[in-house]
Each structure stands twice: as C-alpha cells, then as structure tokens.
C-alpha cells in the first residue's frame, strides 16, 4: 500500500487541544464540519496552506492530551492522507488506526524530511522515501493486526466483516 503526498510539518508535542479546539467538541456527528476546524486556534495557517492529500509529519509525542476522537477525525476528513511522527501519544494513535487514518512511527523523520517535501510511504514494508533527496527512511512496520484494521479503512468496516454484518 503506497501513500504519496506533500509534507506539512509540525514540531514536538502537538496536542489534541491544538489539533481540535475544545470549543468545537459539541460537534459530535458532522465530520465535514469537524474538518473545518483543524488546528484553527493555534495554527490557523494550516487551514489556509494545507491541502487535501497532504501528509502530516510531526515530532515526538504527536497527539498527546485529550482522548477526543475529533482530533483524528478532523484530519481524516480534511483529507490528510497519513500522519508520520517520531512518536505518537497512545490514544491519538489508536483513534487514527480505528478511523483508518494511517499513522506511521518513523524515528528521525523530522531530520530527514522538510516542510513541503514530497514523500512516499510503503505501509506494508514500513519505509518512507523522500522524493526530493531520494533518501529512504526506515519506519516501524505496523503489527499485522493493526495493519488489517487500517487497510480495512478502520475498526467499523473491520468489525462489520468480523461480525458478519453486510452493507453500509
């Protein structure tokens, strides 16, 4: 599974309050509306400069803080194709997987990839290629079980299959 995209880069400890402000938590169902508020309060430039299809590259502890699933949902429905980070905080990591938003741990990624680079992620093998420098960055391969959820587009389709529930 190859994922290609333009890099939008952040630093360390990007927390879920920053990704999705608390004042919009009352939006519980409309995912397109959630997407309109990604990074709105602290990094409003994201909504102006990022594009659907981009890949977010973060530093250490990406997604720390609150368990709000909207933080992963808003990125997915904005059109973010994947998030690559040095490390992730655990609940954001789980939420992204369960929503079918690929999250890849790649130690050293912030040294090897710059804002606006184009990268290509091979999810099955666990490598990332920087198209500007042609460098190959080794990522942590997702455990098979988690890969199965991500490639099924999240936990809901996965569970429907498992429980034998058909259709949408």
């Amino acid at each position: 599974m190859l994922i290609k995209g333009h890099v939008y880069k952040f630093g360390n400890n990007i927390n879920t309050d920053v990704i999705y402000p608390g004042k919009y938590l009352s939006i519980t169902a409309d995912r397109e509306e959630m997407a309109k508020h990604c990074f709105e309060a602290v990094h409003p430039e994201f909504l102006k400069n990022a594009n659907p299809g981009d890949i977010i590259v973060g530093g250490k502890n990406f997604g720390c803080g609150s368990s709000r699933e909207q933080a992963a949902t808003c990125l997915k429905y904005f059109g973010v194709r994947a998030v690559v980070a040095e490390t992730f905080a655990r609940i954001f990591y789980r939420n992204a997987i369960n929503l079918g938003l690929p999250v890849i741990i790649a130690p050293g990624i912030t040294q090897q990839v710059e804002h606006n680079d184009d990268i290509e992620i091979d999810l099955l093998i666990g490598i990332i290629k920087n198209m500007r420098t042609n460098e190959i960055i080794k990522a942590k391969k997702l455990p098979d079980f988690i890969l199965k959820i991500v490639t099924n587009n999240g936990l809901i389709p996965y569970l429907k299959k498992k429980l034998g529930i058909l259709g949408n």
Binding site: S67, E69, A72, I91, R94, N95, N98, L99, G154, L155, I156, L159, L163
Partner: peptide
Amino acid sequence: TGIGATEMAGVWAT
C-alpha cells in the same frame, strides 16, 4: 485507560 469513541462503539457491540 482512556480510549477513543469508535473503539468504544466496538466495546458496546462486542
């Protein structure tokens, strides 16, 4: 432990 909403839906179901 804290979990997300979609996986809680999975817990409610299974």
